[in-house]
């Protein structure tokens, strides 16, 4: 069956989404046009507006439609604590799971020289300016526990050290409900060397 040009265009466009192949793009397109035209219009308007208006926060680089995002703008948050993460979805994960009340800095990636991503690409000059301005007591390094994430954390920790600011790193450990037998060696070795004294 050959598709009408507009339909073909829609299916092709939907394939830019992660996890959407030709078959599911087709299903989505037919669903929107046959059963949910209101939803389709709403989606197209929301998409249009979001792409048009959402940029990066000037202070923390996360996605934001205002010049400074709502977290950076909130005077009730602890201005002396900054948590460094790789992506905006990491901000969301920490917001939802922890009671963290400080600010963030979003790198939008990690150091990866062979991909051409160095300190400048991650906005680390901006972070350094913030460290130099003063007022920050602790930098929480919440990059991913990969070699690239560790390297990024190490680089930023040196930057913090040069500016006399304490840097801390998220702990590595055994996941909740995990069983030692099935945990990979690297995680277990980290958890073992980072063990804590039992207290009441």
């Amino acid at each position: 069956m050959s598709l009408s040009p507009l339909l073909g265009q829609l299916i092709e466009a939907l394939r830019c989404l992660p996890g959407v192949g030709p078959k599911s793009a087709q299903r989505m397109a037919f669903h929107l046009l046959e059963r949910d035209r209101d939803g389709a219009l709403k989606l197209s308007r929301a998409l249009d507006e979001a792409v048009e208006k959402i940029g990066q926060c000037k202070k923390c680089r996360t996605l934001s439609e205002t010049e400074v995002c709502y977290i950076c703008n909130n005077p009730l948050r602890d201005q002396g604590l900054v948590c460094v993460v790789e992506t905006p979805s990491d901000v969301l994960a920490i917001e939802q799971a922890t009671g963290f009340k400080g600010l963030y800095f979003v790198l939008m990636g990690h150091l990866s020289p062979l991909d051409g991503i160095g300190p400048a690409e991650l906005g680390l000059d901006k972070l350094e300016q913030r460290l130099q301005q003063g007022g920050i007591q602790e930098l929480i390094l919440a990059t991913n526990p990969t070699v690239e994430g560790e390297t990024t954390a190490h680089y930023i920790s040196q930057m913090a050290q040069e500016n006399g600011i304490r840097a801390s790193r998220l702990a590595h450990g055994i996941p909740l409900g995990g069983e030692l037998e099935y945990i990979d060696g690297g995680t277990l070795a980290h958890a073992f060397s980072g063990r804590l004294t039992v207290s009441d």
Partner: peptide, 9 residues
């Protein structure tokens, strides 16, 4: 240039 040189502080 070698980009990894930028990682040394």
């Amino acid at each position: 240039p070698l980009r990894s040189r930028e990682l040394f502080r």
